[in-house]
């Protein structure tokens, strides 16, 4: 420790350019996700492990999907939906819940970083992790004999809509509940949506409840992706619309109810 030379602390206030703030905050968000063991488990290890298991071990029978390639065709879209949910919803909700509890968001609110740039950085970090997830899931899927069809653009539209819907839900949950409550609720919802979301087995298994369940965000995303990638049927209006409605409602509610501390 040494003394401060005169003038060394003289005020020179001013905000950095927005682009510099965005890149610094995005880098920090990414570091935090990739350093967090539970987040990596949730967003990478579980989806990839589940994909390998579901394709190789036929304990779930899928109508008309006989053989490893056909099973991969069915399960890859569902696991992609699971990956988007894990990162945009569960991971983000838990992170935001604890950031509020630890006073991080309050602290950032006292810096020149605008809230829009903070949310922008969180979104960019989510998209970057999703890109990594998609690349790894597709690589593993292809290795397992996956034979994708359909348009990349339509897949992109669905993933973006799904990310918006899940981010809205994640911010709503993490922005209103305490850290530990968020952790419990986000994990529970992750599990429920995994089971009811057409990831582990087709929604037809639920019989008469299928039309209703298919409107859940995970189900809409997995069905939409499956229609494009497996059936080559193009973008389903019903699924896209369901995701859009979830996105509008959840982002609207989050922007009203979100508490920064």
């Amino acid at each position: 420790m040494s003394t401060w030379s005169p003038g060394s602390l003289a005020p020179r206030p001013g905000a950095a350019p927005l682009r510099r703030m965005l890149s610094a905050q995005t880098t920090a968000e990414l570091k935090l996700v990739l350093r967090n063991g539970e987040q990596v488990l949730l967003s990478l290890v579980i989806p990839l492990g589940l994909l390998v298991l579901l394709v190789l071990v036929p304990f779930v029978s899928v109508d008309g999907a006989v053989g490893r390639g056909a099973r991969a065709d069915f399960f890859v879209p569902g696991v992609l939906a699971l990956a988007v949910m894990s990162t945009a919803f569960t991971g983000q909700a838990i992170a935001v819940g604890f950031e509020r509890q630890y006073g991080v968001l309050k602290r950032l609110g006292a810096t020149p970083l605008p809230r829009t740039v903070l949310l922008g950085a969180k979104t960019l970090a989510v998209l970057a992790v999703e890109l990594l997830q998609v690349l790894l899931i597709c690589a593993v899927g292809l290795a397992l004999g996956w034979d994708p069809r359909g348009s990349v653009l339509q897949v992109l539209v669905l993933v973006v809509l799904g990310t918006a819907a899940f981010s809205g839900l994640g911010l709503l949950l993490g922005g209103t509940l305490r850290g530990l409550t968020t952790l419990a609720a986000a994990n529970l919802l992750w599990f429920v949506l995994l089971v009811l979301g057409g990831v582990l087995f087709p929604l037809s298994a639920f019989g008469g409840a299928e039309p209703l369940l298919s409107l859940l965000p995970t189900a809409a995303l997995s069905t939409g992706l499956r229609d494009v990638l497996d059936a080559g049927a193009g973008l389903g209006a019903r699924e896209a619309l369901a995701l859009l409605v979830w996105a509008v409602i959840s982002l609207g509610a989050a922007s009203r109810l979100f508490r920064w501390e």
Binding site: R12, G14, A16, M21, K31, R35, F98, Y102, V104, P112
Partner: peptide, 20 residues
């Protein structure tokens, strides 16, 4: 008021990068 997962210097550099 800091990310538990960031290192001490990383947190300070992050906030420093918000200023001109």
């Amino acid at each position: 008021g800091a990310y538990p997962g960031l290192r001490c210097a990383e947190m300070l550099r992050l906030v420093a990068s918000f200023s001109a």
